[in-house]
Design a protein around this nucleic acid. Structure first.
Length: 1029
RNA sequence: GGGCGUUUAGCUCAGUUGGUUAGAGCGCCUUCCUCACACGGAGGAGGUCACAGGUUCGAGUCCUGUAACGCCCA
């Protein structure tokens, strides 16, 4: 049958196809996968997006790349499972919800209570999970949605409990005091990774601490400097360097060395530093030596305000080249001081409450919070005249990434996972090649990070997460515990000697408060770090700890596709957790893809407001364009810079997105002055405005490509009347058929190997070039004429449908919707296809087999000959264009070439007429140029276009003259190269030969050009000024 | 401070193991709304490959240094 043309719009309509085919695929159950012994498994566990917010283009890229692989592998006959899900993202999600609660309802989490807050977060989670999964579906992601998991659901929770229990039992999990980054607003410790630094204006305060009973010649005060005065309340020592003179020597030597190596512009600055250091030695060294002696003597200092006696100690942390050379030591509130405290066995005094206010250890300052505490301390010290001086200074302040408030370092009880052995197993998996990381260089950051083997702090003082399954009991005896839990393998306990209590861990179920008769059990309130459950993702989603058929079949998963910023936090931990729990790696390969950056080169993030919603792109360009565009941009080395613009919903004009306007809920169009809302609109009045989509012209290439494919398909579909499937014998194939089939075989091979090596961009480019420049620009143009010839039509139709069929299948993983749309149309017009073997097409392209490269069809000779044809065609078109010949005017041309080339070109004569409006008058060695002609010299060929009535002689002569000049330049370079004896001697013979041939070619072209000018000058325009050449 | 990466046309990017006259898309110029496609066709202009050295017969490609930018870790 023929598809009525009016049914096929000239422009592809992505929205309709997306809606239709996603439903179709789901209803057919194509996304679902079950263990199937008859097939090989291919599985991917999705990097679960955080339920914090909606997905941006970075996620779109990540998931597009996964879907491309999954769809391809499915077509290749694998039992392909893509496991979807989302991450509870503990601290991030709780922070978002808490902030929202405070802004909109003026409620703190404490007012709401633990259960209330958690319920609110579940609501949030449900909303955003729905939105996220909806976004993935709109993108066409072929996840097995029935298996969707959430890191906090019952199945994942069970995996967490089992892992924790096993680690606790084996004493890989322990409880200890550590200095943590305390977020006083969220009242939780945050990891180093969740801290960012910001430079702000602050001060450097110099305080005098009185020496106790100074002897003659000894200073009455020790001066220390700090940027955080209130911490002095927790000081437990003042340190001075044990050998100040030697330390100064070393500092000076280092500076001198740098001075020698420095560029001249930096020398002045370094010289100043050296001078300062020498001055310092002159004025301060004696005092520092005295203080070092006093420290060795065990002398003490009186801490002002609290009147506490603290020791003067000798420690290398005190740098004589910096500040006063003495440093106050606050072990409980500074990471470096903490190290000193451990080294010198100093008491560690915590002066902070969880909410950031000072506690009872701060004496009269108890209850104050910063900045009041700071002001009070400074004011009181000033009253005592102990403030030596105050300097202005830029200081780096650590902030919590979540609450954006300053971090207070704080000594707290935390749970840790011992990393030494676990980290080693994860390192081994990569070094011995069981897990391969692409691109390879990322293996280094993985190994570097793991090799530090720092214990992993896993407790978080949050309410949203997996609550740690540990109960404390202070009063029971071990015998009582044994009795209470007799016969239970799912409960273990360890003694916490430091705090005189039992730590009881339960694997399956929560323990009741009265589980030990006569004693109260108190549950640990902390939850686990989000990454603890994420680390289990590849096996917890498959049912572990149960030995499910899924786990046996799909584990280890085939590949993990993720972004480089979580190689350490997530990838490394998944490897060690998989090895620990399952005894096998979680995935065989890891592909690290680029990041999407905005126009300023910054990564996209919710907090910066520069994230682009993939739905915006889908609405404007279509899901296929989004996917193809992203794949096209995914190269190995580079991040993707994506400048974006707002599209005004009123006037459709584009407005540049700036750092300024990208975070606003509403933006005023500078063209029409009307306002529109953005993705940040939350208030009703903002949301009521029409939404201004964020778009990027970088998707136009892909949108245009989809449209091109659509129209090429229309051409095919409109010419299938009378189509009858049948095999095509080699003898029936014309040169254009053999050429396109040869190219198709090569392209099939290339796309397959590129995708196997995660070279998405290469695969996309190969397909783009083939579909556009070869299939559309040449094959379709050539086949048009044959379709009108009843004798040639059947073969043309068969090769055409076969080629389109194969091209669609190759493109399907990248652009699933348009290919499925065309596939169905093609199935109506040509349900059976194939040239070697005729077969019925599958009901969906999703389940059609991936094309096999027909390597026997690859024909370099045909491709080379075809290239000659393309050259001549281009030459004729070039002449037409530069002579401004109207499209409807037919011209005559001739070609002078050897007999072999003539044999090739002669069969193409009809194509010159249809594709260049040019009729061949003569092709061969004996061709004489027409009296008046334009010409193009090609290697071994000369093309003449007879333009007796049309030619602009002056322009042609001018053009040829320029060409001679250009050729002269190239010839000179070549000659020089070939005159170089060492080139002749040392370069490979083939290269030298190539250069000689190239020179000959250039000389021939020059001679031809000279002849043309000569002829035109003499025969056509004798009066034209004498030319120099 | 350490590590990794980037710097090629006005913009965004390719450029495999060093070897003819360095490519693509967008934008720009000329031209054509020809019956698949103006989200299109045909043609064109535009680059001393960040800078300075070095290795080599030959360097965008390899080595050293410098600068700028980005990311990760301290």
């Amino acid at each position: 049958m023929t598809i009525p043309m009016q049914d096929l719009p000239k422009q592809y309509n992505p929205a309709a196809a997306q809606d239709r085919w996603h439903k179709f695929w789901e209803s057919k159950g194509y996304f679902h996968s079950e263990p199937n012994r008859a097939k090989k498994p291919f599985s991917i566990a999705i990097p679960p997006p955080n339920v914090t917010g909606a997905l941006h283009l970075g996620h779109a890229l990540n998931n597009t790349l996964q879907d491309i692989l999954i769809r391809q592998k499915r077509m290749q006959g694998f039992e392909a499972l893509w496991m979807p899900g989302t991450d509870h993202a503990g601290i991030a999600t709780q922070a978002v919800v808490e902030r929202r609660l405070l802004q909109e309802e003026k409620l703190s989490r404490h007012q709401l209570g633990r259960e209330g807050l958690v319920a609110r977060i579940w609501q949030w989670k449900n909303d955003y999970e729905k939105r996220i999964l909806g976004q993935l579906k709109e993108m066409g992601c072929s996840c097995d949605w029935h298996r969707t998991r959430f890191t906090l659901d019952a199945q994942c929770a069970r995996a967490v409990r089992h892992t924790f229990f096993k680690m606790f039992q084996e004493k890989l999990i322990y409880r200890g005091k550590r200095l943590v980054n305390w977020d006083a607003m969220l009242q939780t410790a945050v990891s180093d990774d969740e801290v960012f630094h910001e430079t702000t204006k602050g001060h450097f305060w110099y305080f005098n601490y009185p020496t106790i009973d100074p002897k003659p010649g000894e200073p009455a005060y020790v001066t220390v400097a700090t940027t955080r005065p209130e911490t002095m309340l927790g000081d437990t020592a003042v340190a001075v360097h044990p050998e100040p003179s030697a330390a100064l020597d070393k500092a000076e030597a280092d500076l001198l060395q740098r001075f020698e190596a420095a560029a001249s512009k930096d020398k002045a600055d370094l010289q100043k530093q050296i001078d300062d250091l020498r001055e310092r030695r002159r004025t301060m060294l004696a005092d520092l030596e005295t203080l070092a002696d006093m420290a060795r003597d065990g002398r003490k200092i009186r801490l002002p305000l609290l009147n506490r006696e603290i020791p003067l100690i000798a420690d290398v942390w005190a740098k004589p080249e910096l500040g006063t050379g003495c440093v106050k030591i606050t072990p409980a509130h500074d990471p470096n001081d903490y190290e000193v405290g451990l080294r010198q066995r100093l008491p560690m005094i915590n002066i902070l409450n969880c909410d950031g206010t000072l506690n009872e250890n701060a004496g009269p300052y108890q209850g104050l919070a910063n900045p009041k505490a700071r002001q009070a301390v400074v004011a009181d010290l000033e009253k005592l005249e102990l403030v030596a001086k105050i300097e202005d200074r830029e200081i780096e302040i650590a902030h919590s990434d979540r609450s954006k408030t300053p971090i207070e370092p704080l000594l707290a009880d935390q749970w840790f996972v011992k990393m030494d052995h676990l980290a080693q197993t994860a390192m081994d998996a990569v070094t011995d090649g069981r897990v391969k990381i692409f691109p390879e260089r990322y293996a280094k950051s993985y190994l570097d990070w793991l090799s530090e083997k720092r214990d992993w702090p896993v407790s978080r003082q949050l309410w949203w997460g997996h609550q740690i399954p540990v109960w404390y009991c202070k009063t029971a005896s071990e015998a009582e515990l044994q009795k209470a839990f007799a016969g239970r393998a799912d409960v273990v306990w360890h003694r916490d000697e430091q705090n005189c209590q039992w730590l009881i861990c339960a694997q399956e179920e929560d323990l009741a408060e009265n589980a030990v008769p006569g004693h109260a059990l108190v549950r640990e309130l902390d939850v686990l770090d989000t990454w603890f459950s994420s680390a289990l993702w590849p096996h917890s989603t498959l049912g572990w700890p149960e030995q499910t058929p899924e786990l046996a079949y799909y584990y280890p998963t085939s590949v993990l596709i993720t972004s480089r910023d979580i190689i350490t936090l997530w990838v490394a931990r998944m490897v060690l957790a998989g090895l620990y729990n399952v005894g096998d790696i979680p995935f065989r390969e890891v592909f690290i893809h680029p990041k999407i950056l905005d126009g300023y080169g910054e990564g996209m993030s919710k907090s910066k407001g520069n994230g682009v919603d993939p739905i915006d792109v889908i609405e404007k360009f279509g899901a296929d364009a989004l996917r193809f565009g992203l794949a096209y941009l995914t190269t190995e080395t580079q991040d993707v810079r994506m400048p974006v613009e707002f599209e005004c919903p009123h006037c459709q004009k584009l407005i540049e997105q700036t750092k300024e306007n990208r975070v606003r809920p509403r933006v005023k169009c500078k063209h029409c002055s009307k306002e529109f809302s953005t993705q940040w609109a939350e208030k009703a009045e903002d949301k009521a405005l029409p939404r201004g989509a964020v778009v990027s012209e970088r998707f136009e290439l892909a949108r245009n490509f989809c449209n091109k494919l659509w129209n090429a398909s229309r051409l095919v579909l409109m010419n299938l009347e009378g189509y009858a499937a049948a095999t095509v014998a080699d003898g029936e194939l014309l040169v254009d058929d053999r050429w396109i089939l040869s190219r198709l075989a090569t392209v099939t091979q290339d796309v397959t190997t590129h995708l196997a090596g995660y070279r998405y961009s290469e695969a996309a480019k190969v397909l783009y070039g083939f579909a556009w420049d070869e299939f559309c620009s040449f094959y379709l143009e050539m086949v048009k004429a044959r379709l009108t010839d009843p004798a040639a039509r059947p073969t043309a139709q068969r090769v055409l449908t076969h080629t389109l069929d194969t091209l669609l299948r190759l493109l399907h993983p990248m652009i699933p919707f348009v290919t499925e749309e065309v596939w169905h149309l093609l199935n109506e017009a040509a349900p059976q296809r194939g040239i070697e073997r005729v077969a019925s097409a599958s009901e969906s392209i999703m389940i059609a087999p991936w094309p096999q490269s027909a390597s026997a069809r690859q024909n370099p000779e045909i491709e080379a000959r075809f290239a000659r044809f393309q050259e001549v065609l281009r030459a004729i078109r070039d002449i037409r264009s530069r002579q401004n010949v109207l499209p409807k005017t037919q011209i005559n041309f001739s070609v002078r070439c050897d007999a072999a080339t003539a044999d090739l070109l002669k069969p193409m004569e009809p194509y010159f007429i249809s594709m260049a409006g040019a009729r061949a008058t003569e092709i061969g060695p004996q061709t004489n140029p027409p009296e008046v002609s334009a010409n193009v010299s090609l290697s071994g060929m000369e093309v003449f276009v007879d333009l007796a009535d049309l030619i602009d002689v002056a322009a042609e002569i001018e053009r040829k003259q320029q060409e001679i000049v250009r050729l002269d330049g190239l010839i000179a370079v070549k000659r020089k190269k070939l005159e170089n004896q060492s080139f002749i001697d040392r370069a490979p013979a083939a290269v030298v030969e190539g250069e000689r041939a190239a020179l000959k070619e250039l000389e021939d072209q020059r001679a031809a050009a000279v002849a043309v000018v000569e002829r035109m000058k003499n025969t056509v325009a004798p009066g034209y000024p004498k030319l120099r050449y």
